[in-house]
């Protein structure tokens, strides 16, 4: 089943790594607090609550208030990790993210739990597929999408050290580890991690799509098509240099993301290409409100699979 040797069959819920890391960070730094919206369980904060009962501020089902409270905590010297399901954090509190976090330049980590179509059968109300577009539009807000547990933990280290306003997806849908064993750090802010140096096609992916792009790379290799995989874990600011290099050195790019095509990773790549090195490209994403189905079913429905990525690549280079 698994065509790429570097992609293991073992898969992980990134919230587990998130939870362990948050506790470790909080042990080391008394400024770290968690703020949530009745999402202790779904944000995997039970252990944090047991360890630091006073440092978990659960405001109830009230996302605007949640983000405002985080801004007040930041004003008071704390580093809040705001933990809530992605659709409600990004959609319900957009204006607070803009005014209270980004425009106010507070070091707050907005942790979008269960992003993309992780809530599968619960349907489009619970799918966070517009978040990358909405959050990318806000100035002075860094947008991160770690692709596996190692990246999630390393991104959290960076978030605390940087003191930046940050929006970060924390995946629920299980993914294999995609971090190559030889990397010193799993996540480098603003840098795309490249696997392989194939000159036929570049597979540009983020989050859940990275492991699928790596599998597509193996499928294409069997057909004699040499692909490189670009893991974009910092959506904003985008690593334009690596994108332009890929455009120059290959015949085209396939961009795949678990989100809408209007304004997300694909749009960011398209802008970069158009201004610097126009190239052939194919964009894969969530193109409509989803029908009922599991996350895996829906990813397949929208062609967000290794096969879907490989097929798009073949058309580009064929």
């Amino acid at each position: 089943m698994n065509a790429h040797s570097s992609v293991s069959n073992e898969t992980f819920d990134c919230r587990v790594a998130f939870s362990e890391k948050l506790i470790a960070l909080a042990e080391a730094d008394p400024r770290i607090v968690a703020v949530c919206n009745d999402s202790v369980g779904s944000s995997n904060l039970n252990a944090f609550r047991d360890r630091f009962p006073d440092r978990l501020i659960n405001v109830g089902i009230a996302e605007q208030n949640m983000v405002g409270v985080a801004a007040g905590l930041a004003n008071g010297g704390f580093i809040p990790f705001v933990c809530a399901a992605g659709p409600f954090l990004s959609g319900r509190a957009t204006e607070q993210v803009k005014a209270d976090v980004a425009y106010s330049n507070y070091g707050i980590v907005l942790c979008a739990m269960s992003p993309g179509m992780a809530y599968g059968e619960l349907g489009p109300t619970h799918h966070s597929i517009e978040d990358l577009s909405w959050m990318r539009a806000i100035d002075n807000l860094d947008v991160l999408v770690p692709a596996d547990p190692e990246q999630t933990k390393a991104a959290m280290d960076w978030a605390v050290a940087s003191g930046r306003p940050i929006y970060m997806r924390v995946g629920r849908h299980k993914v294999p580890s995609v971090t190559p064993a030889d990397r010193d750090v799993a996540f480098t802010f603003g840098k795309i991690d490249v696997t392989g140096d194939g000159n036929d096609v570049a597979l540009v992916a983020t989050g859940t799509l990275v492991s699928r792009a790596l599998e597509a790379q193996a499928i294409l290799a069997a057909d004699g098509i040499a692909a490189r995989v670009l893991n974009v874990s910092t959506i904003k600011p985008l690593d334009a240099e690596t994108i332009i290099k890929a455009a120059k050195e290959t015949k085209g790019l396939v961009i795949a993301e678990e989100g809408v095509l209007e304004g997300g990773l694909g749009a960011a790549v398209a802008t970069t290409l158009a201004e610097n090195h126009p190239a052939r490209a194919k964009f894969l994403g969530v193109t409509s409100f989803a029908p009922t189905g599991s996350t895996d079913f829906l990813l397949e429905h929208f062609g967000l699979t290794a096969k879907g990525i490989a097929d798009a690549a073949r058309k580009l280079v064929g």
Partner: peptide, 27 residues
């Protein structure tokens, strides 16, 4: 200036966060 206000309904949540921080920090 403590808060970048303008859109209405933002100040009180921020103030609540500040008041929580005041107690949590012991200051």
């Amino acid at each position: 200036v403590e808060a970048n206000t303008g859109p209405l309904g933002h100040g009180l949540p921020i103030a609540v966060g500040s008041a929580v921080a005041s107690k949590l920090s012991g200051k």
